[in-house]
């Protein structure tokens, strides 16, 4: 029973990840947004995907609490710094 749920959940996560990848692409082709905000949206989507992979594929939720904290911090700090650096350029 639990295994089936787990299977389905992983597949849903994969569909979400592929969907977000497609959305990032569509943004590129439409390019109605201003350049900087487009870049920020793409980076935010990328780090949302990172979080999905970390939580559902790497199972940081099941891991030691320190691992979870370390991964959340990594995502927030690296993503934040990159967006900040990108906006400064």
């Amino acid at each position: 029973m639990m295994l089936n749920v787990a299977k389905d959940k992983l597949f849903l996560v994969l569909v979400a990840l592929l969907g977000i990848t497609m959305v990032s692409w569509l943004f590129i082709s439409s390019a109605n947004l201003e350049e900087k905000s487009l870049g920020v949206v793409i980076l935010l989507l990328a780090f949302f995907k990172v979080r999905l992979i970390a939580i559902h594929f790497m199972e940081t939720a099941m891991a030691h609490r320190l691992v979870r904290i370390a991964f959340e911090t990594w995502g927030a700090v690296v993503g934040g710094m990159m967006i900040l650096g990108y906006l400064m350029g």
């Binding site: 692409w25 870049g39 793409i42 980076l43 790497m58 690296v78």
Partner: peptide, 15 residues
């Protein structure tokens, strides 16, 4: 996989 997701967005997509 996770690192490629960021690399792809950063190198190929971000204008």
């Amino acid at each position: 996989d996770l690192l490629w997701v960021v690399l792809f967005s950063l190198i190929y997509l971000v204008p």
